[in-house]
Amino acid sequence: MSVGPLGKAKPGATDVARLPPRDDTPFVEAAWLYYHDGLNQNEIAERMRISRGSVANYLNEARARGWVRVHLDSDVFRGHRLAAELCAVYGLAEALVVPDDPVDPEGTAASVARVTRAAADWLPRLLGPGDRLGVSWGATIYRMAQQLPNMPVPDLTVIQLLGSRPAALGFAAEACTAMLAQRLGGQCINLHVPLVLSSKALRDALSAEPVVRDQLDALAGCNKTVLACGTCDADAHVVRSGILSAETIADARDDGAVGVICGRLIDSAGQPVPTEVEDRMIGVTLDQMRGKDMALLVAAGPGRAAPAKAAIKGGFVTHLATSTRVVEELLEMTA
């Protein structure tokens, strides 16, 4: 809907914009007839004595306002044959396997969107009253957060796991955490420090500040996490965000690095591959990421199977949301 100052429709706006201000009745009526009574758009147009185009606009507006959310039960994906096989092979508690988009042969944008949407529907069901959810960062987590339904969890605390770093497209760590907290109705604890400092001494001094120490204690006490495991390619997120140089990550690959969890590198067995920058980082450690009651890894897109396997083997994952292609690659790795 195109709206001008004071809520007045601009010239050429849709039928929705020409409704009287704050008159929500047509939206509600159209949504009820479509989603509850099962009428098609032509039948609704006849019933409401409006055009079919207006019906489509009303339904779109109802969805845009968050009044309607189409939900496909995650049990459908958790019951997938590949999900059961993956759990059996890798010892996962549960896995959610989304079919790849058939017109997306490389498993890129469309398939990533499918996985993040399914993970967003699943995450609230993995949480309970009193949980302390630690949140990783990056494009995958940010996209998932954007699609999360408004489903408040009583007495939930949502905690940023690592310090801040400028990131393209707005998916900085604090944005991921704040959005998840808002959608889940939880208390938000951001880590108000840079992720990387210029020296270890400065890192140690800042970490010792009482307010920062309290935030670090909070992230250490998370009982559940949601995370992504990035790649160690030359265009990896840790390189594009300036945490590591292309030369440093190339050297780390030579040392066996295959994945990145919260800015820290791991090898194929899920063990740390240290870099010099870690002495200057403020955030969760790899040891603190292990052994959680629930740790949901969202793995989507090309090249994600090897990092996912490493994260699972390292004890960072109990639940996995991914696509058919990634699962098939994971199972091939055990053959």
Rank of each mutant, 00 (worst) to 15 (best):
M1I: 03
M1A: 01
P5D: 12
P11C: 08
P11F: 05
T14W: 14
D15P: 05
L19V: 04
P20C: 08
P26C: 06
V28H: 15
A30M: 15
A31N: 08
H36N: 08
D37H: 03
G38W: 13
L39Y: 14
N40Q: 14
E43S: 12
M48N: 11
R49A: 13
I50K: 12
V55K: 07
N57H: 15
N57Y: 06
Y58D: 05
Y58V: 10
E61F: 09
A62T: 04
R63F: 14
G66S: 13
W67N: 03
D73M: 14
F77C: 15
H80G: 09
A83M: 02
A84S: 10
E85P: 01
V89P: 11
V89F: 07
E94R: 11
L96F: 01
L96D: 04
D100P: 07
D100I: 10
D100F: 12
D101R: 15
P102V: 13
P105I: 02
E106T: 09
R114I: 05
R114F: 04
T116E: 07
A119E: 00
R125I: 10
L126N: 11
G130W: 02
D131W: 10
V135W: 00
S136M: 08
S136D: 15
S136F: 01
G138Q: 08
A139Q: 07
Y142L: 10
R143C: 10
R143H: 12
M144G: 12
A145C: 08
N150A: 05
M151P: 11
T157Y: 14
L161N: 01
G163T: 03
G163R: 04
A167W: 12
A172K: 02
C176Q: 07
C176D: 08
A178Q: 06
M179A: 09
L180P: 14
Q182D: 11
G185D: 07
G186E: 05
G186I: 12
C188S: 08
C188W: 00
L191F: 04
L195H: 03
K200D: 12
K200W: 15
K200A: 15
L202D: 04
D204L: 08
A205T: 03
A208C: 09
R213Y: 06
D214I: 02
L216V: 08
D217R: 04
A218S: 03
A228K: 07
D235Y: 00
A236K: 14
V238Q: 02
I243N: 15
L244S: 05
T248R: 09
I249M: 01
I249W: 06
A252F: 13
R253Y: 00
G256M: 11
G256A: 04
A257V: 05
A257Q: 06
V260H: 07
V260E: 05
C262D: 06
I266N: 12
D267W: 01
D267G: 09
G270F: 00
V277G: 00
V277K: 00
E278R: 00
R280V: 11
G283K: 07
L286P: 11
Q288T: 00
M289V: 03
G291M: 01
M294K: 07
A295H: 06
L296S: 10
V298T: 01
A300I: 09
G301D: 02
A308C: 07
A310T: 05
A311V: 06
G315N: 10
F316I: 03
H319I: 10
A321P: 00
A321E: 02
A321L: 11
T322H: 00
R325D: 04
E332R: 10
A335E: 15
